[in-house]
Structure formats: structure tokens, C-alpha cells
Write a protein that binds this DNA or RNA. Structure first.
Lengths: 163, 163
DNA sequence: CTAGTATGCTGAATATCATTCAGAATGAGG
DNA sequence: CCTCATTCTGAATGATATTCAGCATACTAG
């Protein structure tokens, strides 16, 4: 069965399986992938290239163990904007997204306007981030920080298969 | 200069550069990587293998464009536990982390005990997740959902280089 | 029903790349 | 100054991706 999610992109069950597998091992060899989906290597290769070209596979990345490189400290930083400063949004977002400690920035509903996922080395660097980077931002009203005590689950893989 | 973050793991500036590069392109060829860090392919290969073996590089993954596969809807679901149900924590976490729509689960400080990052297809599936999966969990007190209106930045790459 | 066309497959051939290895260079410690 | 450990390089090898010709299948139009 074909499933068209987004316009122009149809994924059959083999495509779905390929995505499911590559989301868990982005470096699996083409031959091994072919074996798992019961196709020949060239057939799988063509499908993977198509998925890359269509942007379904956005990119391949190596995931680094944060703790092993000293970025043990994860937190969520929420902030909202001053009502009369909405023309500065882009300016603020440009700055915020340029900071390497900011892994994610989401515009959200609720009490705050934005949520950041931030990785820092320790409490000192977090304090520095909040007081020297966040607070001085022109147009920011409230800032609220939530510390992550334990990362219970962390995956980048979304469920592609039909439910 | 050598930097020892975690015990037994030292990363020189070449290792750091390798990590920086592979975090942005996990499928870069060894030869190309070698060129970028000004070393021979075998030398780089040995370093990458060492980083993998030490667990600094945890894994390689393909990142899928959520919108292109119909999982447009991202949200944060916070919940806290009933005080007298703390013995059920593991039970709850086992269930929560087994659900494929839950990408992340963090134990956090603040008003709620846990924050989930959840990817669903649409409002219906979010409603289903909240009312049919979260609410029925024995021992869960409060549940609060924040919708992501726009993903402004999303990276998995942490800044390895010294600051 | 059938010719024509498009799509997607396979297996063999080729090209690219990872991986191994021997030997050379470098730096630290005695 | 010598020795050992580390890490490098370049050449050789092996594994893998990639290309291609030919074949099967399904769909379309007459």
C-alpha cells in the first residue's frame, strides 16, 4: 500500500522499513540494508537516494555522548517577549539560534513564547548563559529555567510504519 | 592541548574537529574527513574507531524530516507523579518510554516531574495520546501539554571545541 | 485484447572507499 | 643518549557503493 503524506512523496512499505532502519543505524551498509528489506543492493540504493533527494532523509549525523565530552548539564530555558517588542523577534531569534549551547528552539503555546533546549558543561556555564546571554537580550520579558536531572529516553527516530 | 573531560577519555584538537564534522555529516567519507583535518586516511580512521570504541561517538543515525512523513505535530507533555505512588515510577517510565511517539523523556526540576517530547501526526492523535495513554497511567497526577508552533532551531550537534 | 510506455527490479562490471600493514617519525622517561 | 610507546604515512588489499544493460511488471491508450 502506498501512503502519501506530503504532496509528491509516497512511501511504500519498503521505504518505510528503510527509514526505520536508517534512523537507528545511519551507517548500515547498503548490502546489509538490502538483505534486511529483501531486495538487491542496487534497488535499495536507488530508493535511499530517492529518499535523500526528496528530503525525507534530511541528513546523517553522528550522535556524541554528551557526558563523555563534558556537556553533562541539560536544561530547558523558557522565555517570553515583551508585547511592544515584537518587531525584534527575528533579531532575538538570530542571536539565540547562533549560540552553540542552544540545541533546540521552539516557538510554543502557553505561558512562555519560546522553549530552548540547552546543553552546558556545568552550573557555572549555565549561570553564564542565563545572566550574560539570555537576560541581556533586548525585548525578553520572562526567563524560566528547568534542569534535567536524568535523561530517561532520547531518540531521534520517529515511527514511520503505519498504525 | 589535551582535554580530559570524562575519566580515560582525552580529546586533542584533531579529535574535537573530527567530532564537530561528523556531528554535521555522519556519512562523510574517511578520505574527505582526512583532508579536512590534514591527516592521512588511516590516521583518521584509527581516531574515529577509537572515538566509537570509547563511546564518545554513541551512534550514527539518519534524521528524517518529520513534516515529510506526516509527523508535523510536535509537543511537550509534562506530568507529575502522585506522592504516594513513587514505587510505581519504573512501571510508568517503562510504559512511557516504550511508546514510539515519545522521542524524549526527561526527569526534571520544577512544577512537574517529567517532560516528554512527543511527535504525533495531528490533533486527533495527540488527543488520543493524552486521553488514552497518559491520563490512564496509574500514579500520574497532573498532565500539561505545550504545543510547538514552529521549530526555530533543531540540532543534535554539541559544541566540542574549547571555549 | 494488445502495443506501447514507465517503473522498478536483478546480476555483472566497475569505481570508490575503508581497512590493514610495514616501516618511519616523534616525544617521554630512564 | 637510548628505549619504548604512540601515532603517523604510503602502498596493498579487501569491502562496498555505484553504474549499467537487460528483464519483468503494471498501467494506459487505442
Amino acid at each position: 500500500m502506498m501512503v502519501a503524506y506530503s504532496p509528491e512523496i509516497e512511501l511504500d512499505s519498503v521505504d518505510q522499513k528503510i527509514l526505520q532502519i536508517l534512523q537507528n543505524d545511519g551507517r548500515l551498509t547498503n548490502a546489509e540494508l538490502a538483505k534486511q528489506v529483501h531486495l538487491s543492493p542496487p534497488a535499495v540504493h536507488a530508493r535511499v537516494k530517492r529518499l535523500e533527494q526528496k528530503g525525507v532523509i534530511a541528513r546523517y549525523v553522528a550522535l556524541v555522548d554528551r557526558q563523555k565530552v563534558g556537556y553533562d548539564n541539560l536544561c530547558f530555558v523558557e522565555f517570553s517577549l515583551q508585547l511592544h517588542r515584537y518587531e525584534q523577534i527575528q533579531n532575538i531569534l538570530d542571536k539565540v539560534t547562533s549560540w552553540p549551547e542552544v540545541l533546540e528552539c521552539h516557538n510554543v503555546t502557553g505561558e512562555y513564547d519560546y522553549v530552548l533546549k540547552v546543553a552546558v558543561k556545568n552550573t557555572q556555564s549555565l549561570e553564564h548563559f542565563i545572566s550574560k546571554k539570555m537576560i541581556p537580550l533586548e525585548g525578553v520579558a520572562k526567563v524560566h529555567t528547568t534542569l534535567v536531572l536524568k535523561e530517561v529516553k532520547a531518540t531521534t527516530a520517529i515511527n514511520i510504519l503505519d498504525d
